[in-house]
Design a binder for these strands. Structure first.
Lengths: 340, 340
DNA sequence: TTGTAGGCGTTATCAA
DNA sequence: TTGATAACGCCTACAA
């Protein structure tokens, strides 16, 4: 059985100074690696720090410097994102890698309700973070607006927000969708449909636009169905609907790999062979793509790179630079496998 | 001593007090919802707060109170976890839900390198969080040890850690594995194997132990293969090995759904029918289970509930209570579908 | 019920 | 190169 020991008092700069026989100012200078400290003094102070086990009190430092050395990663709608979105993990890793190298602490803030939303806003105002990376915000996102209003350095991963001057980094969904649809057309399909999704977000809208552009005159609105979420179920239902609308359909562009996987299921259920009878392509190159039978042809998103770019953007804004150009779009690539 | 600058400055309690014509003490009392404030004064102060747009400076408050009203969620090994583990998202949501209701801010801290590890430790010492929830730590986890050493209220999701007095909440892997193996036996199988995994973690060890116990005298060590990761690939390879060792195998317990999905693939590849020729069961009831063909029979983990319990534990430790019993194991259930 | 004032632990501005 | 000494913005005894 364990006895509960109270927390011991933390050593302060005071203690270090006393131990070293120096002033608090000198100790502070050593802690921050500032010049104008003699090698001798530095050594003595460092030994004292070690001896008393000193760690700087960040609250005090923050109060004085008005900085926190932490960057927030704001994730909205975790219910769909955290559990379904295959890219968020990679984005997070990329962001963390850059921040870590610059000695910044990444703190992820999840917004799962209105209550969360306002508390996060207060958290941000509280000076807990020096900047933020916002993932996958919608066009009218209130937290992005709040961030802009308080002048916090920020960068959005996903798409330009309708907030003045906010940096962003994303992919060109229109071009990517257009490219893979064209590739699908080249396999000789004549009736190509799309299972669209998340049309309330820019990514969803853009993928649909790219699809439409690629098809040109061959575009048939009756061959497009759409669902709110990028989910497997949407793929199953959507494919069934498409088959019903036109049994002769021979190509499908799914707005995400999860959707494509669902479509594959519905196709098998209907006795269609892939890719012989129907060609299917997805979007994301997530783990879904390799779990499918047949393996999915899809668009690869540079998710980790997106996270890294966003982090770099925030860091440079912290240095005082104004983002220019405001945003950048990273290259996607097509991964052609067996489903089309 | 008040100066009027043209530059924008954050409002302080001072400003509110001046605006309201009251003392800073009264303003503070209103901010913290303390008693002994007249309704009249409260109204005036609240109006003033609104008018000057005051938000409390958290760094100052933390410095004074030594509290942050934030709880850290420490996630280790994100490369395997964030991208593969199906439960982490749900745990996070559960934790956040409880904390949010108690007006605590959840901050997720990712540890992706040794550098991260030490920086997170410093972050924790900096008083940024009042407590932590640690996900999926291994037995000898250094961050858990560091947390214990600094006396921070903590709770581990997954398994008891070998650190004195650290609370935990998990599932009974032994009992769950035993239960689903027994269920599989009841379908009349005589040669049952297991694709084990992560034997360096308790969860992996326990699932194997449960399997062994269920089989009793029927247990055959040659029908157990194991792999380091709970991955799809492990399932494919493992199943192939099992088929080679004994072509007459007619039942398989996979240590995770991802593994089971891989096993399904290898089985199809070898021309075996599931569940007719071979019965397969998994573990987790993750999204994999519904992506398989046939749908997977598996063990459901109450992941969201785990997160909630852990959060409650930390919160009550914050109130001063000593966790007793130290840990608790939540009930799992069997979800029986088509794969066995 | 309200006001006053002394720190919390740092960093930064001066002098020395 | 080092040492004293103000703040930073808030909470909280204690006094009124």
């Amino acid at each position: 059985m364990s006895s509960h020991e109270g927390r011991l008092r933390r050593a302060t700069i005071h203690d270090v100074a006393a131990e070293a026989g120096m002033s608090r100012g000198t100790v502070s200078r050593v802690m921050n690696g500032e010049p104008y400290v003699s090698d001798e003094a530095r050594a003595v102070v460092e030994a004292a720090i070690e001896k008393v086990g000193y760690v700087r009190n960040t609250a005090a430092r923050n109060l004085k410097t008005q900085r926190s050395h932490a960057i927030g990663l704001i994730v909205l709608e975790p219910h769909s994102l955290f559990l379904e979105d295959p890219n968020i993990g990679a984005i997070l890793l990329g962001t963390n890698a850059v921040l870590s190298a610059a000695d910044y602490q990444l703190v992820s803030l999840v917004i799962d309700s209105d209550r969360d939303s306002s508390r996060v806003a207060e958290y941000l105002r509280g000076g807990f973070v020096d900047g933020v990376v916002i993932i996958s915000a919608r066009a009218g996102d209130p937290i992005a607006r709040a961030v802009a209003k308080m002048g916090l350095p920020a960068s959005v991963v996903g798409h330009p927000i309708d907030v003045d001057g906010m940096a962003f980094v994303g992919i060109d969904n229109v071009a990517a969708a257009k490219a893979i649809t064209s590739r699908l057309m080249q396999t000789g399909r004549s009736r190509i449909g799309m299972i669209a999704s998340a049309l309330d977000r820019d990514s969803g809208q853009d993928r649909l636009a790219g699809f439409t552009q690629a098809l040109g005159p061959a575009f048939d609105p009756s061959l497009v169905v759409d669902f709110p979420l990028y989910s497997y179920d949407a793929g199953v239902t959507g494919m069934r609907q498409l088959l019903e609308r036109d049994p002769a359909i021979d190509g499908v562009f799914a707005a995400s790999d999860a959707i494509a996987a669902g479509a594959l299921y519905a196709l098998r259920e209907a006795g269609r062979r892939v890719p012989e009878d129907v060609g299917v392509v997805g979007f994301d190159d997530s783990s879904w793509a390799l779990r499918c039978q047949p393996l999915l042809s899809t668009v690869r998103q540079p998710a980790e790179a997106l996270g890294m770019m966003a982090a770099r953007s925030v860091l440079s804004q912290l240095e005082g630079s104004v983002p220019s150009p405001l945003g950048s779009l990273l290259e996607t690539s097509i991964v052609w496998r067996d489903s089309a």
